[in-house]
Design a protein around this nucleic acid. Structure first.
Lengths: 237, 237
DNA sequence: CCCAATTTGTTCGTATGTATA
DNA sequence: TTATACATACGAACAAATTGG
């Protein structure tokens, strides 16, 4: 009479909920598999089944002999979502130049993308990503103010690590999935000049929505990339 | 004393090899897990572990009560690699207009991308992908002649299903993974006119290498997409 | 229509190997 | 060395879906 959801899914959901609730800050180990099995009243294999997906997504990392850890948004981890590389495919860490920070109202399209009420208050941060010292991509980050209480330009620009690391450490929002739309457009004048391009040069425009472990959208990001000597790398199995 | 590769990896490799050798044509069921366990002298769980990855990649499909099948390249399956959609994200099957077919020599860059000797003979097919009746993307397919013996324009254009279905049915090459590079460029005159665009309009250029189950590169594909009312959709966990 | 055989899906428990502290 | 934790592997049982009689 088991038409219910499998135990491993229930366990997975429970663990995700605990992580999303901030019970295990990034870098801390989950209870050992044996303990989890006891706590949830199931077999160790079921615990593994439940965590396998999280490990594959990068939300957890397992280390033989040490434990299972909630993945922090180290540069390498965030890098999973950074697709811009030189033509040879060699991964290159970008460095970021902060531009400005503002508080605005959502447009209908933005509200829809983030699942918010129309004209909900948003925070907007803009910065420039540089690769090998050259301006590579201009980015606009749009954040629901309710999810990022008290965030301002100082705290944003003064963060130590990556943007997603900030979301996770300070607001308990762990980005694990993104959805992107890519288009080729003629660069608007303001953007072209920031990238050191002639006006109306073709640029790669990226529209991203980032989701937290629990599936909630937490960020809308618009980006304009100069792909004359770089490319957006994607690989699918 | 087990420093060797795990059994499940060996089993996986063996199954992949058999599929690549054409022992199980697409659509046919693999031997039941119990049989495979006996044949390989291991437990059923180990068989499942071995096939889990193939299922995730879409090379196999499991159906409770029926069996485990070698996935054919149905339109839906090939669709996993088709990323162009209207802005609303609604998936839309393209239809294809054949343009031409030729036999040429590889450029150094093409040979490198396909892992071939310089100036190896290549087959080139060109076609136009249309979405909702409108020209959406121009594609150039470059194929190593040695992998596609006897392929010509007639057989290419006259195929019943998708391109990848042709590769699999007639040449035993099952595409399971692709790597892509995306760039925004100004459309060359010939391409712009095919897409019904003004010369030098921004288009999304896609460079793809497709790999078979066994990891061998089998196709180099260049594509130019009109993204004025379409977008390239990508999602990563 | 029901029944039985087959096949995958889920879950359990256990044992051993290997890496870490 | 010892204890802990994950990695691999085995075997068993039952559930659920499918198929064919």
């Amino acid at each position: 009479m088991n038409v219910e959801t499998p135990i491993w899914r229930q366990v997975r959901a429970a663990i995700v909920a605990e992580i999303a609730a901030g019970e295990f800050p990034p870098g801390t180990p989950l209870p050992a598999e044996k303990l989890l099995a006891e706590r949830f009243g199931c077999a160790i294999g079921t615990i593994r089944r439940a965590t396998d997906g999280l490990v594959a997504e990068g939300a957890l990392t397992r280390q033989q002999g040490r434990g299972t850890f909630v993945a922090g948004h180290t540069p390498e981890r965030s890098f999973r979502f950074f697709h811009l590389r030189p033509a040879d495919g060699r991964p290159l860490l970008p460095d970021t130049q902060f531009l400005d920070f503002a508080r605005l109202k959502a447009t209908p399209a933005q509200a829809r993308a983030l699942g918010l009420a129309p004209t909900a208050p948003l925070l907007r941060a803009r910065h420039l990503q540089c690769l090998a010292g050259e301006p590579a991509m201009l980015e606009e980050l749009w954040l629901p103010e309710t999810l990022f209480p008290g965030l301002d330009g100082q705290r944003f620009a003064g963060r130590p690590g990556t943007v997603y690391d900030l979301y996770q450490r300070e607001f308990g929002l762990s980005v694990t999935r993104i959805e992107e739309q890519l288009r080729a457009i003629a660069a608007p004048a303001r953007i072209a000049s920031r990238l050191g391009l002639a006006a109306a040069s073709p640029v790669l425009m990226i529209e991203r929505v980032a989701f937290a472990v629990d599936g909630k959208p937490v960020e809308l990001r618009l980006a304009w990339a100069d792909t004359t000597s770089l490319a957006y790398f994607n690989s699918r199995a």
